[in-house]
Design a protein around this nucleic acid. Sequence first.
DNA 1: CTTGTTTTTGAGTATACGCTCTATTTTGAG
DNA 2: CTCAAAATAGAGCGTATACTCAAAAACAAG
Lengths: 182, 182
Amino acid sequence: MARYLPGLQTRDRILESTRWLLARVGLDGTTLAAILDRAKVRSGSFYNLFDSKDEAILTVIREAINAVDPHPDGVGKDTVEELVDAYVEFITGQPTLAKIYLQTAVGGAMNDEALAHRVISHHEARVSRLADAIRRQTRTSKAKSQLEAELLLAGLTGLAFHWLLDPDFDIAARARDLMASR
Amino acid sequence: MARYLPGLQTRDRILESTRWLLARVGLDGTTLAAILDRAKVRSGSFYNLFDSKDEAILTVIREAINAVDPHPDGVGKDTVEELVDAYVEFITGQPTLAKIYLQTAVGGAMNDEALAHRVISHHEARVSRLADAIRRQTRTSKAKSQLEAELLLAGLTGLAFHWLLDPDFDIAARARDLMASR
DNA sequence: CTTGTTTTTGAGTATACGCTCTATTTTGAG
DNA sequence: CTCAAAATAGAGCGTATACTCAAAAACAAG
C-alpha cells in the first residue's frame, strides 16, 4: 500500500498509463511492459503498489463503469431528453472510457464475475431511471414505460457501437431521431 | 497450398478445430497448441497449409460474418421480420462468434484493419438490405426507410449487447417488441 | 516400380510475457 | 540528525506462445 506522496503519485501514473493503453490498444496491447514504459516506472515499483497487472486493469475498468452515470444527484427530476443527451455526451466526450466500458461488457470482463454484475446493475439502473422519466412525461403504464426505456437504451447502445466503429457517424443526430421515432 | 486430398482434409480439420475453440473458449483460449491438439495435427503440417495462426482464425471469423446473412440468394425478397429473426438467431446461436464480432467493432480484438472494414461494410450491407425490406413493406421514402433501418439495427445491436451481458435476457421477445414499436 | 511432389513429423528456436528478489535510495516522523 | 519504513531500480526467472526446419513418410502420375 502506498503511504507517502511519491508512492501515491506513482500509483496515479500507473493508472493513467493503464487507462490510456486500454483505450488505445485494448486489453491485449496493455502489457506490463507497456504500462511501465508509459508510466516511467520499473517493475519493482509496480509490484510494490499492485498485486498483479490485472489489479491495475480492473481498477481502471471499475472507474470507467462508474463514470457512465450522469449526475446521480438529479435522480427523479430529469427528462428523457436530458438522459439521452447525457448518454451521448458520455460516449462522445469520453470515448476512452466508453470504449473500455463496452470492451469490458463484450469481452466477458476478463472472467471477473463481479465486474459483469456491476455492468448489469448499472445498465438496469439506467433503464429504470429512463423509465421513470418516460412515465413522468407520457403517463403510460409502468410496464410499458419500462419496455420503452429498455428499447431506447438498446438503441443508444447500438448507436454507440456504430459511432465507435465509424467516428464520422452522427450519433447525436441519430439519438434525436431515435427519440422522435417513439 | 493444399493440392492432394490429405492436405485438404487436414485443412478442414484445422478449421473445424479453430471454429470449435473460438466458440467455446474465445480468442484467448484459441492457442496454436489447442488447435493442433484438437485437429490431431503437428505444427509442421499446420504451417504447410497456413501462413500463420491468425490466418486460420480470420478465415473462421470471415465465415461467421458471412453466415449472419440469411439466404444471400434471397436479396430483394426477404421481409423485415425474417431479417430480424436471422440476426437474433445468429447472436443466440453463436454467442462467442457474436462476441468476437462486437469485440472487433469496439477494437478490442485483433488489430486487423481489414477485418474492421469488413465489419463496417457488412453492417452497411445489412442496413441497406433492411431498408429495402422496409421500403417494400411500408412504401416510405428511400431516406426515411434508410433511417428507420439504421435505428432498428442499432436497437438490435443494443439488445445483443444486453443479452451477452445477461443470458436470461429475452432478446427474441425484445426484438419483436422493437419491430412492433415502429 | 520409379520419381518428383506433397504431406507429416517433432525437436528446436526465438520471443514476449508476468512476476520475483535483492540491493539501493528516498522519505518523513520523532 | 537518526533510523525504520517506504519506494525504486533492474537483472533475471519460469513459462507459454507462435513459428522454423531438416528429415522422413505418403502420395500419385508415368
